[in-house]
Design a protein around this nucleic acid. Structure first.
Length: 438
RNA sequence: GCGGUCAUAGCUCAGUUGGUUAGAGCACUAGAUUGUGAAUCUAGGGGUCGCGGGUUCGAGUCCCGUUGGCCGCCCCA
């Protein structure tokens, strides 16, 4: 047993694991590319203040934070949003709108590990800045859906729950609640799916007994699953804000429907996303079986850039985690098999053969072909087995017989046919083989 | 931070009421096999039984502590 082990919650990526991770990142990048998002990166270590400013002091308990040798309070980044707000805020006036950016980066949270949650994990972060209307949400939710579909997942596998903190505010306001009551009620709404009526406990402790009529209206609001039901609920309430907000909903749902994405979307006002900085539409993606933690989450945060010292700049974004995504792909049999096969494997019969082979190996590799060979003297029979096991398409055979004739024997490892070519023609023959069959 | 549960080879595991030198399969390496592919046979490497302490003539086995994994709670940006 090794004397040292990795720290809890930090994964090590052996080649098989790495190739699975790379597959996820490759498809995330491809999706970002087709949606026209630009990639950025930023420091792993940030001033602790950056996170306190956004989320309050209590956040520190969940951070990898420490004092550096210069006496600075610092933290490993737990998320990208404050950082990207700073980046965009600093150059906001020079950037073309809308600003469509993404990153794939590692984050750190000092938390107890559980299935689907490590202390170090990677996320795809996607944000649009400078677009106040629901057009930005359409673009982002379409991106979110496509970034799962790209793996071969369908509406059978995942869905996106769509909600709106503004709608809750306007609705509860119209029912007569003040801002502190509204915030407490949203906490209760957030917990209601899990705890049922116990979710209202904290609200009642703070504001006294809950009016049965109010409770009934809140519960009814939670049941809403369609736009039509939304309209019906508001028909009796006289609120300009609600009317305007419904127009945003209509635009958002209409846009997603025009893209053919309705089958992935569920209106679900039970999603309010814990922390307070979201200012409008919020959404979360889940697996359909409900076995995993949230796959992705996001929403609008129009005040955050300004709060962190930049200009007022509307923003909406989401993040997908690599851990739950990998678990979902695994469950659905969509994780790729580990493939690390050369194109060509050389079978070498002695020192003279090795020298001849090396000349071709180097030239083939320089031409971009992936070539492998046994580093030590190995019996011929075993070399053919190695060639087959390697997954190569071709074996090049450099034995005494071939050398004497000035040829190389080329074996097609899939159909087991062989033919000889002149040493001088090997490069061209190999090149032709792969250009006509790939 | 709290609770439950587990820990024997790279992996999956066996190991009798506590008893000699801790085992198997898979994987890996080598040989049979200097000229042709999923086989077979043979051999080999690999373990401070997670770590530390205790009980005992004797501990992989029993007790305590600790570290780590898994599950749940809190939290989830």
């Amino acid at each position: 047993m090794a004397t040292f082990q990795s720290l809890p919650g930090f994964r090590e990526f052996y080649p098989e694991d790495f190739s699975r991770r790379k597959h996820i990142f490759d498809l995330w990048r491809r999706t970002a590319h087709v949606f026209g998002f630009a990639e950025y990166d930023a420091p792993v270590l940030e001033p602790l203040e950056l996170y306190k400013a956004k989320s309050g002091d209590e956040i520190e308990g969940q951070l990898f934070s420490f004092t550096d040798k210069g006496g600075r309070e610092v933290a490993l980044r737990p998320e990208m949003t404050p950082t990207v707000c700073r980046l965009v805020g600093a150059k906001a006036n020079a950037l073309k709108r809308p600003i469509k950016w993404f990153s794939i980066a590692e984050f750190y949270r000092y938390e107890r590990m559980q299935k689907g949650r490590d202390r170090a994990f990677r996320q795809l972060n996607v944000d649009i800045f400078g677009e106040p209307g629901p057009e930005a949400e359409i673009e982002l939710i379409a991106f979110l859906v496509q970034s799962f579909c790209a793996f071969g997942l369908t509406e059978q596998d995942f869905y996106v729950r769509l909600s709106d903190r503004n709608l809750w505010f306007y609705y509860l306001e119209a029912l007569g609640l003040d801002e502190s009551r509204i915030r407490a009620m949203l906490v209760a709404v957030d917990k209601h799916e899990k705890y049922g009526d116990d979710a209202f406990k904290a609200y009642q402790e703070q504001f006294g007994a809950l009016d049965p009529d109010l409770k009934a209206k809140v519960l009814a609001f939670l049941q809403i699953k369609t736009f039509a039901a939304l309209e019906l609920t508001f028909a009796t309430l006289n609120s300009d804000k609600l009317v305007a907000r419904l127009a945003d909903w209509k635009k958002l749902l209409g846009g997603l429907d025009a893209m053919g994405l309705t089958r992935f979307i569920e209106v679900d006002l039970g999603v309010v996303r814990g922390l307070a900085y979201y200012t409008g539409f919020v959404f979360e993606a889940f697996d359909r079986k409900g076995e995993l933690r949230a796959l992705a989450g996001g929403g609008r945060y129009d005040d955050l850039v300004e709060k962190l010292g930049g200009p007022a700049l509307p923003a909406v974004g989401f993040a997908i985690g690599d851990v739950t995504t990998a678990l979902l792909l695994e469950q659905r049999g969509l994780a790729p098999a580990f493939v690390s096969a050369p194109d060509v494997y050389c079978v070498i019969g002695g020192e003279a053969g090795r020298k001849a082979a090396f000349a071709d190996v180097q030239a083939l590799r320089a031409a971009g072909r992936r070539v492998d060979y046994p580093m030590k003297e190995v019996a011929f029979g075993k070399q053919f087995k190695l060639a087959a096991d390697s997954g190569a398409r071709l074996a090049l055979i450099y034995g005494d017989d071939e050398l004497a004739k000035g040829v190389v024997k080329i074996r097609d490892l899939s159909d087991r046919t062989e033919h000889e070519v002149a040493r001088a023609d090997v490069q061209a023959v190999v090149r032709d083989f792969f250009t006509t069959r790939s």
